[in-house]
């Protein structure tokens, strides 16, 4: 009898899988472990301690950068999600929106263009804008974050919309609901898990970003990742391990939530 091909039966499957997992998680394990080290030398374990966490949390520069990162991520995620919902509606619902696939590809541009190129391009554009308008401030950093967050918010929203029966909206319109009521009572509630997932994904992506932030930020606009990068240049501190571990924890928490939320089918 012909057996179905099963990669698990190949010799060495277990070893390769173990190696892959080790590559994925060993660095994180080392990082997390040493963030709890009582000593301050790399590679020498001196016992368990919260020392670096306490130090990081009371460091004014870290507090400042962390707050900026959180606010930036929240606002960028909110704006990019709102734009992504509009884009998803246009590219899945509107018939007259002819080149839908081309438009979807254009929206996903930040996934394709190398981040460093995007960073240079934004830097160029923004310095021209600064010169022309004389405006400065957080707006530039925010605009940059919204830009690269859009595709991450767009994809889950669109997936949700595509899985949704368009007849539901027709049925609501047929039952005398105005287009706005249809959106409020049918589309939005059914889309909510996708919107939430998109928002959380965008939040994490913004929180995480270093390359573009590094190029766009001006004095006094340090985000948590750019602050960490700056500190590491000066010399490695276990304080940064603690901050990194907290960031990993936060990202993990949010991604898990977004996964759980999006699992409820339309």
């Amino acid at each position: 009898m012909a057996r179905r091909f099963d990669p698990q039966t190949l010799p060495g499957f277990g070893a390769i899988a173990a190696l892959a997992f080790a590559l994925l998680y060993l660095p994180l394990i080392v990082l997390v472990t040493y963030s709890f080290n009582a000593g301050d030398l790399i590679g020498r374990w001196e016992g368990l301690s919260w020392r670096w966490y306490a130090q990081a949390l009371s460091n004014a520069a870290i507090q400042d950068a962390a707050l900026r990162s959180l606010v930036l991520a929240l606002v960028a995620a909110a704006l990019s999600t709102a734009l992504a919902v509009l884009a998803a509606l246009a590219t899945t619902r509107a018939d007259q929106f002819r080149p839908r696939h081309a438009i979807a590809a254009v929206i996903n541009q930040p996934l394709v263009v190398p981040e460093i190129v995007m960073a240079v391009a934004l830097l160029l554009l923004f310095s021209m804008l600064r010169q022309a308008t004389g405006l400065s401030g957080m707006g530039y950093l925010l605009a940059a974050h919204v830009t690269f967050c859009i595709p991450f918010a767009y994809l889950p929203v669109r997936a949700r919309l595509e899985g949704m029966d368009a007849n539901l909206e027709r049925a609501a319109a047929d039952l005398y609901a105005s287009p706005l009521t249809v959106f409020r009572r049918i589309t939005l509630p059914l889309l909510a898990p996708g919107i939430l997932a998109g928002f959380m994904l965008a939040f994490v992506i913004s929180l995480d970003n270093v390359v573009i932030s590094q190029f766009i930020k001006t004095a006094g606009q340090e985000t948590l990742p750019t602050y960490m990068l700056g500190q590491l240049r000066r010399g490695i501190s276990a304080e940064i391990y603690a901050v990194s571990t907290m960031l990993v924890g936060l990202s993990l928490l949010i991604l898990t939530l977004s996964f759980l939320v999006n699992r409820t089918r339309p």
Binding site: D165, N167, R170, A171, A172, D174, L175, I186, P189, P266
Partner: peptide, 12 residues
Amino acid sequence: NTVFQNYALFPH
């Protein structure tokens, strides 16, 4: 008013 072939009842 319409009765849809797949009913299109509001699932929520």
